[in-house]
Design a protein around this nucleic acid. Structure first.
Length: 444
RNA sequence: GACCCCUUCGUCUAGUGGUUAGGACACCGGCCUUUCACGCCGGUAACACGGGUUCGAGUCCCGUAGGGGUCGCCA
């Protein structure tokens, strides 16, 4: 039987990073096994359900590149969907649940209790076969011993999570349930329900949770908990999926930075760890940098625009050359505007601290000489520029920085940026000389 | 209160009875350099604790401690 997995989020208005990883693991497994990835929206809690809340999930998954083979085509629960096992919004499946509840009643496995309907739960321990945790024997808790029969339909007629979850997994032919470990204990109820419907339960794989850096449970407000934050901060989605894939799963060798295609190929359930993992912002940042620098220039350019870089009227060649000097040095695309804006405008202020040092009176004479040398350099490219500058430093018997600092400040106004020689070559002789003159004037 | 899961450097992890306990992020030092958010080289740093089993235990068993989860007419 071919693999069918599902991601079943509830539209709460945000996509939790842990939920994103659950979706990723399901998707990875489907793609690895050549199976189907189903998206089902558990929108039974109507209060929080809004088209916007659903969009957050849909957009989040799209951004991550987790395309679903079956599921909603839009954020309209009553709208179109892809796949023949729909509807994929639980709010549209009331009849199916009613039919299944009736089935349990007929079998004598469900009964009414003050208006609600309870499932006749078994009283013995349930063994949960789990691909990651092994066989887990779940005993009843003290409270469950008092009342083992749990509610499957509320007195207002709405079916409860445990029921709809199992019914949908049956109807949708789900073969593997990959979900957070917070559902492990609940699985006893689910297995009992599957049996009540005379259906062999799917394979279960409970994956460890993602915790905060301090080990506490990650909730909505915690730093980094919402996927939207990463989307807005300009993170590269492949970096996020790469980072997330390494939380709980391991390729078992020293691989760290991998393209999605490689992760798909190597991903499998038995390699998943059983221990919870903590979210490490710094490693994600590093991972993002690794993916950012590997981006094709066209993509990088697009991100630069999104980050707010104004290219002015620059030509494409100039833009590509300019961004090329930044790509392997800028860690976050958010930093790009301050890093490269000097390329696209002549109107910038000198950083005070930088200028105070760079434009010190003692530097003026050497810097003026540098201007003349650069005016005469035959080939205005990095290597000749560097050679010329160093030759002059030697001739004047000054440290290289005496020439470099004012040159950088004159060209960019700030102390951090691309390699000085590269940046001057991109700027071109005319622009560099104009900026040198302006700086010289500021030095007197 | 009960039940379930987990425990290797600060963090993510490799390790399936015999290893100098490996890698990555972070950190520290050096080199290069432009004073940098590039790069290169090097370093500090871990088997939670206590009992077993075994010639030998990070690896197997039991216990303790700690962390997480669940027990709802939320999902």
């Amino acid at each position: 039987m071919s693999v069918r997995v599902r991601f079943a989020p509830s539209p709460t208005g945000y996509l939790h990073i842990g939920g994103a990883r659950t979706a990723l693991f399901n998707w990875l497994y489907a793609r690895h096994a050549g199976g189907k990835f189903v998206l089902r929206v558990e929108d039974t809690d109507e209060e929080r359900n809004t088209p916007e809340a659903i969009n957050v999930i849909l957009e989040g998954l799209r951004w991550l590149g987790l395309d679903w083979d079956e599921g909603p085509a839009s954020n309209d629960p009553a709208g179109d969907s892809v796949g023949d096992r729909g509807p994929y919004y639980q709010s549209q499946r009331a009849e199916i649940y009613a039919r299944r509840v009736e089935e349990l009643k007929v079998k004598g496995l469900a009964y009414e209790d003050d208006g609600a309907i309870r499932f006749r739960m078994q009283r013995e321990a349930v063994t949960i076969p789990d691909l990651i945790c092994g066989d887990v024997v779940r005993e009843l808790t003290d409270r469950e011993q008092e009342q083992p029969d749990f509610v499957i339909v509320r007195s207002d007629g709405k079916p409860v999570f445990h029921l709809v979850n199992v019914v949908d997994d049956i109807e949708m032919g789900i073969t593997h349930v990959i979900r957070g470990e917070d559902h492990l204990s609940n699985t006893a109820k689910h297995i009992a329900l599957f049996r009540a419907f005379d259906v062999e339960p799917p394979q279960f794989a409970h994956i460890p949770l993602i915790l905060n850096a301090n080990g506490s449970k990650m909730s909505k407000r915690d730093e980094g908990a919402s996927l939207e934050g990463w989307q807005q901060a300009g993170y590269v989605s492949s970096a996020v999926t790469n980072y997330l894939s390494l939380l709980g799963w391991s390729p078992k060798d020293d691989s760290q930075v991998m393209p999605l295609s490689e992760i798909i190929e190597r991903f499998d359930l038995p390699q998943i760890n059983r221990a919870n993992a903590r979210f490490d912002l710094e490693k994600l940042q590093w991972m993002n940098y690794e993916h950012l620098r590997a981006l094709p220039m066209a993509d990088y350019r697009e991100r630069a625009v999104a980050a707010g870089v104004d290219f002015g009227g620059a030509t494409e060649d100039y833009i590509a050359a300019a961004l090329g000097t930044c790509q392997d040095k800028v860690k976050q695309v958010d930093d790009l505007p301050t890093f490269c804006s000097f390329y696209f405008t002549d109107e910038f202020d000198y950083d005070e601290a930088m200028a105070a040092k760079a434009f010190a009176p003692d530097n003026k004479e050497p810097f003026a000489r540098l201007r003349e040398v650069f005016a005469g350099v035959e080939d205005f490219t990095p290597e000749p520029l560097e050679a010329a500058l160093k030759a002059l430093a030697e001739e004047l018997d000054v440290k290289v920085r005496v020439l470099v600092m004012p040159a950088r400040c004159a060209c960019t106004g700030v102390k951090v940026g691309p390699s000085l020689y590269d940046l001057m070559a991109v700027l071109g002789r005319d622009r560099v000389l104009v900026r040198f003159d302006k700086a010289l004037a500021a030095m007197s």
